[in-house]
Amino acid sequence: IRCIGVSNRDFVEGMSGGTWVDVVLEHGGCVTVMAQDKPTVDIELVTTTVSNMAEVRSYCYEASISDMASDSRCPTQGEAYLDKQSDTQYVCKRTLVDRGWGNGCGLFGKGSLVTCAKFTCSKKMTGKSIQPENLEYRIMLSVHGSQHSGMIVNDTGYETDENRAKVEVTPNSPRAEATLGGFGSLGLDCEPRTGLDFSDLYYLTMNNKHWLVHKEWFHDIPLPWHAGADTGTPHWNNKEALVEFKDAHAKRQTVVVLGSQEGAVHTALAGALEAEMDGAKGKLFSGHLKCRLKMDKLRLKGVSYSLCTAAFTFTKVPAETLHGTVTVEVQYAGTDGPCKIPVQMAVDMQTLTPVGRLITANPVITESTENSKMMLELDPPFGDSYIVIGVGDKKITHHWHRSGSTIGKAFEATVRGAKRMAVLGDTAWDFGSVGGVFNSLGKGIHQIFGAAFKSLFGGMSWFSQILIGTLLVWLGLNTKNGSISLTCLALGGVMIFLSTAVSA
């Protein structure tokens, strides 16, 4: 259960009878995928790494000078000259100064003066180019299975845990398959586009800190620079940016070097996208990844198990997540596992009318040892309800109150669905055939309105939902006002479609 501690969480529900669903994975976010007769899966884009970055340009932001020398000439005696002028490691300046009897010249006039100092770069920052084909995306998957609280967001041991898996995709191999043991396998067909235009970005490294910066900004930095990788004795261009020549006297000129420019660069980098280094690879934390999940090989585990009949206890007080759902960790005293956990939410304890829904599909106890633990997640209705676990006299209950409203949740879900469709863009549509167009249209309606429909009408039977949709269509056909007619027709059509397409 990876997503319960992530604030940016998206719930995606598969269409009834569908074998695939489109998701948008982004750094700092987590996606929970639910479908009829399929286990619930949490998917998170953990890291995006980039390798084989080529150094484009380096800037010196802290330097020192040494070996200063000057040469001067009297008027009419030609130009002052130093051998160091031809050495690229030196920074030199030529000027004219007033000369006369007082400073060793027989004539009054302008004399030539040249001053040089050896330039040494102490600290530099480097910009590297990123090729999209060198990106690698690491995705962690977790099935809502027989897990306890100690396994949440624990990325170790996934090789031997059938509840978890790690997959890596690249532009050259965008397809992967996550093996989930008894739950089958989940196929991923990803489109490795981060949403960032790397043709316009460089990877900047300064003092063990890293950013993504725009090329134009990078090339306009007014500091000494050299092109390409460091060859040991780089040729620094624009050395004068960190060196200041003071007022010249008759035979000498003082040279000083400016202080470190790291603070000024940090100020200019305010708002830039931060990154990290992992050995020789860069780690990015921006952008998104679009994936199509193929769920035809994914299956529920323990459908044929019998119900657990022994007593359950709450190991922890049920807690609310950031998303309005409830996490419950229970301990089973029996030894008759594997068995299914009898769990439901009810409005009252007399009729036990089921409300809400299970995020953890078909929760089971897989071990036959005593005191096995299991964590599950529920989506309670707004208002008061009861969490009921167990059967008969051994069942345990917990009162729950959820604040908020169904309308607010439906609106929030619609906005999130619209954002998801905007990110998917043209990849969500198939114009290759008439059937493809209608299929894409259905998927689009489901992406945007599916979660809201589930919130508003999830407790009704599909037949009642179709009746309401048919009534809206009838009202649309018999209303003389054009805008009201079109609105009723659209709402009725969407409702009829979703009542037959969205899983219960």
Rank of each mutant, 00 (worst) to 15 (best):
L298H: 04
P381C: 05
S499E: 10
Q344R: 09
D42F: 08
E133M: 11
V6D: 06
I139M: 12
G432H: 15
S185D: 07
T156H: 03
V143Y: 09
Q344P: 00
N371L: 15
S149T: 10
M151L: 13
T500L: 01
S306Q: 08
P234L: 15
P224H: 05
M206Y: 03
K118I: 01
T479M: 15
T48P: 04
L475H: 07
H235D: 02
K110H: 12
V91R: 00
Y203W: 09
L322R: 03
N362Q: 10
P75T: 03
G408R: 08
Y61E: 06
G29P: 00
V423L: 15
G106T: 00
M68L: 12
Q36H: 15
C488M: 15
S461R: 13
C339A: 02
T414F: 09
G408D: 07
V169E: 03
Q331G: 10
S70H: 06
R292P: 00
L471M: 12
I448C: 10
S286Y: 03
M345W: 00
C308I: 06
L82G: 02
D10Y: 02
S260W: 08
D42G: 09
G356E: 06
E262D: 08
K301Y: 13
G337K: 12
Q465M: 08
H226F: 03
V330I: 13
S173N: 06
S464D: 07
K419I: 08
I4T: 11
R175P: 06
L269A: 09
G102L: 01
Y59Q: 06
M206G: 01
Q350C: 00
L180A: 06
H144A: 04
L307H: 00
A501L: 01
F285E: 04
S385T: 05
V167K: 04
N8P: 00
A451S: 14
D230P: 13
L376G: 01
V21I: 15
K38T: 08
R292H: 15
V153L: 15
T315V: 12
L223A: 08
G14D: 11
H219G: 00
G232W: 00
E162D: 13
S7A: 14
S16I: 01
T369Q: 02
I139L: 15
L242T: 02
Y203R: 03
G157K: 13
T369L: 09
G228P: 14
G444W: 12
G271Q: 12
G259D: 08
G145M: 12
T321Q: 06
F198V: 05
D336A: 13
V437I: 14
F382R: 03
I65W: 04
K281R: 15
Q36G: 01
A501Y: 09
K395I: 05
K409E: 09
Y59N: 10
L293H: 02
T315W: 00
W474F: 12
D67E: 15
A452L: 04
V243N: 04
E370S: 13
G5N: 04
K301W: 11
S433N: 04
G157L: 01
C121Y: 09
V31W: 07
W429Q: 03
V364A: 06
L471I: 12
L284R: 01
A501H: 05
Q36F: 10
L204P: 11
H323K: 05
D83C: 00
Q350R: 15
T414S: 05
A422Y: 07
H288I: 08
L489M: 14
F457T: 09
G408S: 03
R402H: 11
S464K: 09
G102S: 08
G109Y: 07
K395R: 15
E136S: 15
D247K: 02
H214E: 09
V415A: 06
V473I: 15
T126Q: 11
M68D: 03
C339W: 10
I4P: 02
G106R: 01
R2P: 02
K38A: 11
E377A: 01
R9N: 06
D83L: 13
V355D: 00
S440T: 11
A361P: 09
T353G: 14
Y81F: 07
D296N: 15
V41T: 03
K294S: 04
K251C: 04
A490V: 14
T267W: 05
R402C: 11
F411I: 12
N481Q: 06
L289E: 06
D220I: 07
Y203T: 10
V303D: 00
T267G: 02
T397W: 00
C339K: 07
Y158H: 10
T126H: 00
P39L: 11
K281H: 03
R99Q: 08
K340C: 07
E55N: 01
F108V: 06
I484P: 02
T126G: 14
L477S: 08
Y81T: 15
A272T: 13
P342F: 08
V388D: 01
G157D: 02
Q85K: 05
E412I: 06
L441D: 06
L491F: 08
P222E: 10
D197F: 08
S372L: 06
H266G: 13
V6G: 04
F218D: 09
S70A: 11
A178G: 01
S64Q: 11
F463P: 03
K480D: 01
I130W: 10
Q131S: 03
A54T: 10
P171Q: 03
V364T: 00
L25D: 07
R99N: 08
A229M: 08
N481S: 15
G469V: 12
C105P: 04
A310C: 13
E13P: 01
T95G: 05
G436V: 01
L188G: 03
K394L: 08
L376P: 01
D161G: 13
S185C: 04
A80V: 10
A270H: 13
G259P: 13
L491V: 15
S440G: 01
G408V: 00
M460Y: 13
N478K: 13
S129Y: 01
T353S: 13
T351A: 14
K290M: 07
V213R: 02
S7T: 13
V388C: 15
L471A: 08
P171H: 02
G184F: 08
I341C: 09
L441M: 14
A178F: 05
C105S: 05
G127D: 05
S112W: 06
K395Y: 02
P363T: 01
S51T: 15
I130N: 07
A311T: 12
K419P: 08
G17S: 05
D348F: 00
V255F: 15
T88V: 02
C339H: 07
H235S: 02
W217F: 09
C92S: 10
V364P: 00
L486M: 07
N371S: 14
M495I: 14
E79P: 12
S149P: 15
R292F: 01
G271L: 09
H219I: 12
H249A: 08
D247G: 10
E168D: 15
K239M: 11
S51L: 06
D189W: 11
G78T: 02
A250Y: 08
T115I: 11
Y158D: 10
C116D: 09
F119Y: 12
Y90H: 12
T32Q: 04
S72V: 03
N238I: 07
A54R: 01
R164W: 04
G324V: 04
V97E: 07
F497R: 03
A310I: 00
C291Y: 11
T40H: 04
R292V: 06
T321L: 02
G127M: 10
V33S: 02
F119T: 05
V21L: 15
T205M: 13
D278E: 13
S199N: 02
E370P: 10
F497A: 02
T397F: 05
S129A: 15
C92H: 08
F457L: 13
Y81A: 11
P380E: 11
R73T: 08
C92T: 03
